[in-house]
């Protein structure tokens, strides 16, 4: 399986899905050098958006990713509506985490969208990318081992960006 987050974003965008990219991939777009092997997105939970999201996920051949195995899913808006915190998926273009309730002070799509910028990832693919300081705050709150490992580099990046402006 190749990791092509652009294709994941493009298919989400083609279906008209409203989402903000957060986490390590968003940080990489901002300039982070910390490698990430998946893409995390916060989708809008509006019913019509969940229907668009479900169509995109079916196109991506999304399946449930657990610690040890991959399980088939029948994804539709009803299914997505019942997800409370997150859904870890694998797709034909890499791993995709849907984060319905992110850690930290920004807990909803609207919160994240408020600070996000629309960024061209290439070939006119415009995607909402979370603010770096929001990503840092979320990682501080989540405080997993991988978050702790990434934070020094993200904080250094934030300082570097601020020193340039």
């Amino acid at each position: 399986m190749t990791f092509d987050p652009r294709v994941i974003c493009r298919i989400l965008a083609e279906e008209g899905t409203e989402f903000v990219v957060i986490g390590g991939f968003a940080a990489a777009v901002r300039g982070s050098t910390v490698l990430t092997f998946d893409i995390d997105v916060v989708p809008d939970r509006e019913r019509s958006n969940l229907e668009k999201l479900a169509r995109a996920l079916r196109r991506l051949n999304a399946q449930l990713r657990t610690g040890s195995e991959v399980l088939p899913l029948s994804i539709n808006a009803d299914f997505l509506d019942q997800m409370q915190v997150s859904l870890t998926l694998t797709t034909d273009f890499g791993d995709l985490d849907l984060v319905f309730q992110p850690a930290g002070p920004k807990a909803s799509y609207a919160d994240w969208a408020d600070g996000a910028d629309h960024v061209d990832l290439g070939n006119r693919l415009i995607v909402a990318i979370a603010a770096l300081d929001d990503i840092i705050a979320s990682k501080r709150a989540a405080n997993r081992v991988k978050d702790q490992a990434a934070l020094p580099a993200l904080e250094a990046l934030s300082e570097q960006i601020k020193s340039q402006t």
Binding site: A28, G31, S32, T33, L35, L121, P152, A153
Partner: peptide, 26 residues
């Protein structure tokens, strides 16, 4: 853990080039 030289190099790139860098690195 923090290579400021690499961070500065990334900041010179466009967002699209940063995505290319990440995909190649992975």
């Amino acid at each position: 853990g923090v290579d400021l030289g690499q961070i500065r190099a990334q900041l010179v790139l466009s967002p699209s080039e940063r995505v290319d860098w990440l995909i190649a690195a992975v």
